[in-house]
Amino acid sequence: MPRPSCRPQIVEAAVSEFHRLGYHGCSVDTITKAAGVPKGSFYNHFSGKDELAAEVVGLYQSRSAFREYEPAGDESPLTELRGRFRAVAERHRDRDFARGCLLANLGAELGGSVPRVRDAVDEAWRGWTARVADLVTRAVAAGELPGGVRPEAYARFLLDAFEGAVTRAKVERSMTPLDDFFDHAFGLVSAGGTRA
């Protein structure tokens, strides 16, 4: 009988270990020990740590609280957008926000030095940006944001500001940077200066 695949256990363990130790800080041995599988089984499933890290990025993004957020049926686009970001912030707080965002951590640690992981992180950012831009477009159409707002550029700004706040919250071990993000990113741009 064929042996069951260890791949899911390895990927799950790697999400936690990369988040805890960083890419360079954890070895294949660290990951397989955390997964409870023989080290040799790693190479039955992955060509190297970079392939595993790219898969981890995809899994992490697929489980994002931004994606999982369930808007109320009567939520306006801007309220939904704020709610989605708030859900991510709350998840960071509830799951030890001192670890920060795995995407930002890997991006900062690796830059362009591991192309496979860089490409996976870039793809994740682009997907998230597109989802934010869609909500921004809808908020502009609903009159919640000024007509001059450029959805793609504003989406990039929101993500960059949010990830910067997450990183600072990680360093300060405080939610204050995230509170500042919500006060300013949403409170200052809504139509007529009203808060979202």
Score class of each variant (00 low, 15 high):
residue 30 T to R: 14
residue 180 D to A: 13
residue 93 R to P: 00
residue 19 H to C: 06
residue 89 A to S: 13
residue 91 R to F: 07
residue 143 G to W: 02
residue 40 G to Y: 08
residue 168 R to I: 09
residue 38 P to R: 12
residue 154 Y to Q: 05
residue 138 R to T: 01
residue 186 F to Y: 03
residue 87 A to T: 04
residue 22 G to A: 09
residue 84 R to D: 06
residue 171 V to P: 02
residue 79 T to I: 03
residue 62 S to E: 11
residue 47 S to A: 14
residue 109 E to Q: 14
residue 25 G to H: 09
residue 36 G to D: 07
residue 126 R to Q: 15
residue 35 A to S: 08
residue 191 A to C: 02
residue 73 G to F: 03
residue 166 V to N: 07
residue 137 T to Y: 00
residue 42 F to M: 07
residue 74 D to H: 03
residue 59 L to M: 12
residue 181 F to L: 10
residue 103 L to V: 01
residue 5 S to C: 08
residue 80 E to R: 12
residue 195 R to Y: 03
residue 82 R to E: 00
residue 98 A to M: 07
residue 59 L to S: 06
residue 64 S to D: 11
residue 120 A to K: 05
residue 100 G to N: 09
residue 148 G to M: 07
residue 148 G to H: 13
residue 161 A to C: 10
residue 12 E to R: 15
residue 194 T to C: 02
residue 114 V to H: 10
residue 135 L to M: 04
residue 141 A to L: 04
residue 188 L to M: 10
residue 36 G to E: 05
residue 173 R to F: 05
residue 152 E to I: 06
residue 141 A to Y: 02
residue 5 S to Y: 09
residue 94 D to I: 00
residue 165 A to N: 10
residue 26 C to L: 07
residue 107 G to N: 13
residue 106 L to E: 06
residue 12 E to N: 12
residue 38 P to L: 05
residue 176 T to M: 08
residue 162 F to A: 05
residue 194 T to A: 08
residue 133 A to I: 05
residue 73 G to C: 04
residue 101 C to S: 15
residue 163 E to F: 07
residue 24 H to M: 03
residue 54 A to Q: 01
residue 82 R to M: 04
residue 4 P to M: 03
residue 113 S to N: 12
residue 57 V to L: 01
residue 96 D to A: 14
residue 143 G to E: 02
residue 56 V to D: 00
residue 129 T to H: 13
residue 63 R to F: 00
residue 65 A to K: 02
residue 96 D to R: 15
residue 131 R to L: 13
residue 186 F to M: 04
residue 55 E to C: 04
